[in-house]
Design a protein around this nucleic acid. Structure first.
Length: 130
DNA sequence: CGATTGACGTACG
DNA sequence: TCGTACGCCAATC
């Protein structure tokens, strides 16, 4: 009953040049990102691993590039690197928005780094019971 | 179809 | 312990 996004299926719809028509690995990433509870954070590698492509953590971040403007709010600010560093903050608009959102959820951020990242870390594979 | 990129991660020095 | 190099997979040009 869990695992809303497991299989790495990529229907790859035709055309797909318009926003909102992303039917691919990206959509899986968005789905998992939206599953991140408020006040929690996860890493690209964790999502990638959950999707089955543990070694493609870069793809997760790459997919997040399309997360901006998505109709369903994709909490990309909850997805950070393995070091707990807000590496993608520069991609936000403004870049400081990422830290602001995290703090708004009760997450402390110091020097672009999540405090107690180890405690706030939310593993989809573990939490969703992969 | 081939080459390049990428919000990472791990290995090696 | 810190810095640098390589690899991974999918998307984009």
């Amino acid at each position: 009953m869990k695992r809303p996004a497991k299989k790495r299926v990529a229907p790859k719809l035709p055309d797909t040049k318009e926003p909102g028509t992303e039917y691919s690995f990206f959509e899986n990433v968005y789905a998992v990102a939206r599953l991140i509870p408020k006040g929690r954070v996860t890493s690209y590698g964790a999502i990638a691993k959950y999707l089955g492509t543990a070694k493609s953590a870069r793809l997760v971040g790459y997919a997040m590039n399309g997360a901006h403007g998505q109709k369903p709010s994709v909490p990309a600010h909850r997805v950070i690197n393995r070091n707990g560093l807000l590496t993608g903050r520069h991609h936000f608009n403004p870049p400081e928005a990422m830290q602001q959102r995290l703090e708004a959820e009760g997450i402390k951020v110091k020097e672009h780094q999540v405090v107690d990242f180890d405690k706030l870390f939310w593993d989809p594979a573990k939490h969703l019971g992969i």
